[in-house]
Simulated scan of single mutants.
Amino acid sequence: MDVFWHDACLAHDPGEGLWELPGHWPWLDEPEPHPESAARLRTFRSVLRRGPVAPHLRWREGRLADLDELAAVHDRDYLAHVRRACGGPERVAVDVNTVVGPGSWPAILAAAGSTLAAADAVLDGSASIAYALVRPPGHHAQPATSDGYCLVNNPALAVARARAAGLRVAVLDWDVHHGNGTQEAFYADPDVLTVSIHMRHGSWGANHPQTGAPDELGVAEGVGRNVNVELSLGAGDAAYLRAVDEVAAPLLRAFRPDFLVCASGFDASTFDPNGRHNVTMAGYRALGGRAAALAEELTSGRLVLTQEGGYLRGYAALCLHALVEGLVGVSEPLMADPLVYLPDESALCPERTDADLAAVRSALAGHWPELGW
């Protein structure tokens, strides 16, 4: 597997405050670093370089995107607004929890460009599976709106690149939050299937009006091509794997994509402060195996992954390592899980997951007759 990296991704510094909220809080004894920090990405890189999966990886240099490439997904006036906000010298909150500063614009370009480099490598055959280990994350960024730490939609850029090559593309997003930006970018495109598996959280406000509910199906020719799988609070390995096996995989097989993009977040992991789900290393290892198998079956192995959430950085890094083990197909786990002791609510209460998945199938009824939904 090829991992794409660019040091400029570390230059983005959202600063400190009350967790994700910038500003001065006089009662707070010591300000907290924003969860989407450079330390998080450095830790992810470290576990892949030092962990036992390292011999299976080839590291490749990313690059900076240019404005024309970003404009494949984003409004140029919006891009100009973000660039001005990054001009410094002070940090600026472009929405309630998305903060930029002097190093942010190079990081944005590096995250986008490294994702495009990964997509291009898969498209030209020099890579089969490519992982863009980048930040800031992207899947909440809409064509003209920043949101949820995201400024440019990296997975959507990979989709647009493959679409420009005439390919049908499927997106599988397992970040714990709804991939609303990717949904918005392709909501009317019948040749892009977007499947987001996430916690039930609803709209976040003006910058995030999408609800992530199953009834957000797409518009015009894209109706039925947007699929939201909301999972109940505490969903763990069993729920996520059922969502893939019982909803995502049948849809992908019916859609027959030429190219698969995965928005890979680890904020559904055990103890993550930004999620309320309970996916373990074993769950992510299984997700990685399923993603690679679906790509092998449907897209001649063409698979691009972009780094999204994951904010308890030590455990999120272990989950990344486990996911990569699944992606490269190791036969046995290479690392033990040091924190696997919370119960899997989705295994203990399968009826909740039954209801969650039934709601998705019901919303899609009539749009996928070949599946009998």
Rank of each mutant, 00 (worst) to 15 (best):
A263C: 14
V96A: 11
W5R: 03
L233P: 00
A347Q: 15
L172N: 05
R40T: 00
T299W: 01
A286L: 00
A54R: 14
N226P: 01
R91W: 14
R285L: 06
A188W: 01
G179R: 15
C349M: 14
A164L: 10
V96T: 09
W5Y: 12
C319Y: 10
M1R: 08
Q210A: 01
C86T: 11
A317C: 04
Q183T: 15
C262A: 15
E230A: 14
P273W: 06
A185S: 12
E30A: 14
T115P: 05
V219T: 08
R161P: 03
A282N: 05
G236D: 12
S128P: 00
L133I: 01
P89R: 09
P338N: 07
G166R: 04
V195M: 06
R242A: 13
P209Y: 01
T211D: 02
A322C: 12
V223R: 11
L357M: 14
A132W: 02
E184Y: 08
N228F: 11
A213Q: 10
E32F: 00
S104H: 13
S37Q: 01
D173S: 10
D175S: 09
F186K: 11
A243W: 09
G148M: 03
C9V: 11
A144Q: 12
G275M: 10
L48P: 03
H178S: 11
A65S: 12
A164Q: 15
P106C: 08
W204T: 00
D258G: 15
L18V: 02
A355P: 06
L241G: 12
R242W: 06
R76I: 01
M1A: 14
A347N: 10
Q210H: 06
T299F: 04
W204L: 01
T98S: 11
A336F: 02
L109G: 01
L79W: 02
D2G: 02
R276P: 01
G148V: 02
